[in-house]
Design a protein around this nucleic acid. Sequence first.
DNA 1: TTGTAAGCGTTATCAC
DNA 2: GTGATAACGCTTACAA
Lengths: 330, 330
Amino acid sequence: MSRAGKSPTMKDVAREAGVALGTVSKVFNGIPVGKSYRQKVEEAANRLGYSVNNYARGLRADKTRTVALILPSTDHMFFAALADHICDILTKRDYRMLLAITRDDPSAEARCIQMVRQNRVDGIIGLTYSDDLDVGDDLPFISIDRFVSPGIPCVSSDNFSGGSMAAEKLVRLGCKRPLFLRTGSHVSGETDKRGAGFMAWCQMNDVACEARRFDDREGMEPVFAFLDEHFSDGRRDFDGVFCSTDMLAHRVHRHLEGLGVKVPEDVQLIGYDGVRCFNSEGELFCSTIVQPVRQMAETAVDMLLREDRTKLPALICLPVSYAAGGTTRE
Amino acid sequence: MSRAGKSPTMKDVAREAGVALGTVSKVFNGIPVGKSYRQKVEEAANRLGYSVNNYARGLRADKTRTVALILPSTDHMFFAALADHICDILTKRDYRMLLAITRDDPSAEARCIQMVRQNRVDGIIGLTYSDDLDVGDDLPFISIDRFVSPGIPCVSSDNFSGGSMAAEKLVRLGCKRPLFLRTGSHVSGETDKRGAGFMAWCQMNDVACEARRFDDREGMEPVFAFLDEHFSDGRRDFDGVFCSTDMLAHRVHRHLEGLGVKVPEDVQLIGYDGVRCFNSEGELFCSTIVQPVRQMAETAVDMLLREDRTKLPALICLPVSYAAGGTTRE
DNA sequence: TTGTAAGCGTTATCAC
DNA sequence: GTGATAACGCTTACAA
């Protein structure tokens, strides 16, 4: 019997089962072993409540079957859904997920990298904003939505096509004076292409359009001021707005309502993300370009755990789709 | 110089710094060491890009500074906010968080326990639904919203008071025929007390009220059928509904709208959770009883990591508050 | 203070 | 198949 208070070890199981230590190890690693031995080991292990010590295993093997996910927060439906799917997919592959949250703070991002590095994770999936993130080239890293450095693959939705899709949709639905609106990080990322795609489509199709970008550090006031300027007193300077996120679209929607603007009658609104109320089965907040969250999660995990990590693509854009959510005239 | 491709170890740092291995260890454990030595070690460590191997450390110390959070999913704003706060608080205490997701599946819950046990976490915070969850008494466990077994503390919001508060609010706002509606797990938990508190208040105050409970395995159809029965064709059998969650309240709201019922004019609605759009700074979906998520997270972590784990309380109910969200006549 | 050496639980490699 | 043994990287007595 092993000392009380401490978890049993392989040694204990070996003794209990009356077999050699090596045999126990083999059983727990799926290495062929005589049937009667295997059974004796399994019984002894159950009796003792034994379970493999991953720390000892990781120390020996230098593989921990653990992946870190670094996110700004999980307190946003898009991030939360991403975390949910990635965790799910990793679990199915018998990996564990360490979650680290950064609050968009570059120093926290650096600390996280440091922390998960100490924890000898087998790889990192990160949605980060640091300009100069130093991941180190020994640790597999997949970035989401942001180019970090050459050699680090980036997985994102097809932001450019999504932007074009939004433009086309608005125009097809009758908009003559479309507007692109964004708030967001001052750090540039893949998501900037949403606006680029929107503008490009408009130019290609000879539609005059305007774009306004606001820095998220200034909050919503400048956005509201802009809307007031163009929609107060019966003014309707634009009849369709593509917002860089659903959240922005929703706030714009509310503000326009406050100004007496009718959505979608006076102005049609399209967002980006495909975020839903409460959970991914809820309703949309607005008409939107839907990111393929599950597929993004799958791709990120796939690329991270791929055996052959030479010649990974630098950027993978996954196909988006349009979904009507009540802020457009379908 | 250490072999290429492998991370440097303390030994490498010791050699690089020209000091003893033990000295390096002391530096990284904050144990006093000669100033010049400390500096030499730190420089050498930086030069080599050394970072402590937590697996070796955990193996030796039998402490991993890792906590597992077990949730049904993160794809719901309440769970997502909980995960966010718990991760944040753990990080501040220099703990890492392993996230495991169960999809309400008891067998997945058991697998998770097994998995995190292998990973030698220092404790578990779990929001689980298994009837017969076997955590084992060696591993600190804090349950959220559900009584698991004696000796396992449960942290929840004050569901009973929340229910009473909802009843009082509805009646104060003029409701004469209140209704309690719930869908949810067939497994009983602390959250059942929401309805109990509601009914108790009504009885205490001689208000006749009705309660309907639906099993979530049957979906929303039975709920909608019930609403149709009581609100079709101008019927207004109830003028105030307390729903066991914001999500339910929101769906009820939408369905009532479809029936031509005006909220809050004809019927007032109160939910439970305090969940918001997009993130915790968004707007409420409905008038609601707000759970103190941050405080719940803090309490759970506190109790989990408390030094003296004898005489922990069996149940901690944290105070809720009411917030108007447009579905009541304030 | 510093250096040394034992040991944490596993895996892998021997000769039997 | 067994049994012994050497790593893996770190902490911690203990000796110098």
